[in-house]
């Protein structure tokens, strides 16, 4: 539940989601669910020359299982909060 709760705090922020097929999509985080499925609005593909078929896509749902990384906006990472939440999660 830790990362689900954390991603909920990022709603409305700009993130870059990198998929396991190397496609990287930047967009505004609209919502997230317990499987860490992600919905992004105002998306654009990081390497548009390589993936021109994605140019017309404005918003998308990303299945959680195909995500490799999510690049987080540095301003919205409270490391102390994450440490405390991780310790609580590890105990319980």
């Amino acid at each position: 539940m830790l990362f689900y709760s954390y991603f909920k705090t990022l709603v409305g922020k700009q993130v870059t989601v990198e998929l396991k097929n190397d496609l990287a999509i930047t967009g505004t985080l609209h919502s997230v669910d317990q499987y860490l499925n992600i919905k992004l609005n105002n998306v654009h593909v990081v390497n548009e020359q390589k993936y021109p078929h994605m140019m017309s896509v404005r918003n998308c749902f990303i299945r959680g299982s195909v995500v490799r990384y999510v690049q987080l906006p540095p301003g919205s990472v409270d490391v102390e909060l994450l440490h405390d939440a991780t310790r609580r999660e590890a105990r319980g």
Binding site: F3, G64, Y69, V70, Q71, L72, P73, P74
Partner: peptide
Amino acid sequence: AVPFLFVRGDG
């Protein structure tokens, strides 16, 4: 280099 990265556990 990336400042902050979420990494999915299945990888």
